[in-house]
């Protein structure tokens, strides 16, 4: 299942709940303000790194670039474009953690 998150982890608990609910083998895609979670030094980054052995973590590149943080993406997180987003959404059912 594709889990789409769009909130900064310091603003809302969406990422935390999602990581607890998501079943092993799922994909977490960070878009909009959620991309901050996958940047070096953010307090949520460690949680994402810890989740990587059971979930695939992706970030929407254009959203990361727009926020000036493309050079701070943490290890192991895949940056994708809108086409990549479409591919993930075609391959998996999705849940948006609004």
């Amino acid at each position: 299942m594709l889990h789409i998150i769009n909130k900064s982890p310091l603003e809302k608990s969406s990422l935390e709940t999602c990581l607890a609910v998501a079943q092993d083998g799922g994909i977490v895609l960070l878009i909009e303000d959620a991309v901050y979670a996958a940047t070096r030094g953010n307090t949520a980054a460690a949680r994402l790194t810890a989740a990587q052995d059971r979930l695939k973590i992706c970030v929407l590149g254009p959203d990361l670039e727009a926020r000036g943080l493309a050079d701070r993406l943490i290890e192991g997180v895949t940056s994708i474009d809108y086409g990549g987003f479409v591919d993930l959404a075609a391959e998996h059912k999705s849940q948006s953690w609004l």
């Binding site: 909009e32 254009p62 086409g83 959404a89």
Partner: peptide
């Protein structure tokens, strides 16, 4: 799409997703 234009990025994200989906032949 659950949010209005300009206030929130949701409509932009949805639009760019649709455009990319159509470009990929979906």
């Amino acid at each position: 799409v659950n949010e209005g234009p300009y206030q929130h990025q949701a409509s932009d994200s949805a639009y760019l997703f649709c455009k990319a989906a159509l470009e990929r032949g979906h």
